[in-house]
Amino acid sequence: MSVETIAVGAESVYRPQYDSWLLIEALERSNAVAGRRVVDLCTGSGVVAIAAAELGAREVTALDISPGAVCSTQANALAAQVDVEVVLGSWSQAQEHGPFDVVVCNPPYVPVGPETSVGEVAATGPMVSWNGGPDGRSVLDPLCRSAAAMLAEGGSLFLVQSEFADIEQSLASLRMSGMDAKVVADQRIPFGPVLHAQMRWLRDSGRLRHGRVEEQLVVIRADKL
């Protein structure tokens, strides 16, 4: 079954969107997955984990703190007829199951203002799946600092995020941990319901130029030297 046709399942799970597909496309172009041990952090519906399995990964583990996401990933992997070990737990628990050859992650990275209305963006998925805190980096910062410890020698991290969560900070943090980090994919997309719901706050906080309704998504690849 193609990943594009996988049903999301539970309503409490982040729905695959542009960032999910961009991350999968980067994995496809990288040739880094086949025959290797992969972990998908913050897996949500499991769409990236399933794609890794379909790309020939030797072993795939998927982690999420949401019981709904765990159930959805298990159901979607069964429907796609691929083997994915699904673990209920935080992304930070990956070190207990590693090291891995490839770490992939679509983390919560959206900067969220104090007046964001969850009701306006509920169709995107639960707030915890995209809320990256006031600067978008509540998960990105600790993830970038600890990524190298999750990886085997010669392993690679593939991470997707928005420009509004400071791409250069992620690159700098990964490089400081001794990894070779660079942007390997990017895409401009129209604002979805999350950013539309907080456009005023983004402008008032200096993150968004007036009249702009697009954001840049990037995939960062960081290789452990």
Results as ranks from 00 to 15, higher is better:
L151C: 01
D83N: 10
V139D: 06
I189T: 09
G133H: 08
T116E: 12
G44V: 02
A122W: 08
L195D: 11
P99W: 12
F100H: 09
R207H: 14
E54G: 13
S2I: 03
I167T: 15
T43S: 11
L140Q: 11
V48N: 03
D180N: 08
V110D: 05
Q17A: 14
R207G: 09
A51D: 04
Q198K: 11
L157Y: 00
A147D: 00
A172F: 08
D186K: 12
Q161A: 04
E4Y: 07
L63G: 03
L217Q: 09
V82M: 06
D135H: 15
I65E: 13
T124Y: 05
V70C: 15
V86C: 12
D186G: 04
V183M: 08
G125M: 01
A165T: 02
G56R: 09
C105N: 08
F191T: 01
R203S: 08
V87G: 01
Q187E: 13
M199K: 15
E28P: 00
R58M: 10
P16E: 06
D204R: 14
R15M: 01
E28H: 02
V38Q: 01
D204G: 04
C42S: 08
G178Y: 11
S90R: 12
V39S: 02
V112Y: 01
V47L: 08
G89K: 07
D186S: 15
G133Q: 13
G125C: 06
V139Y: 12
Q161R: 04
A10R: 02
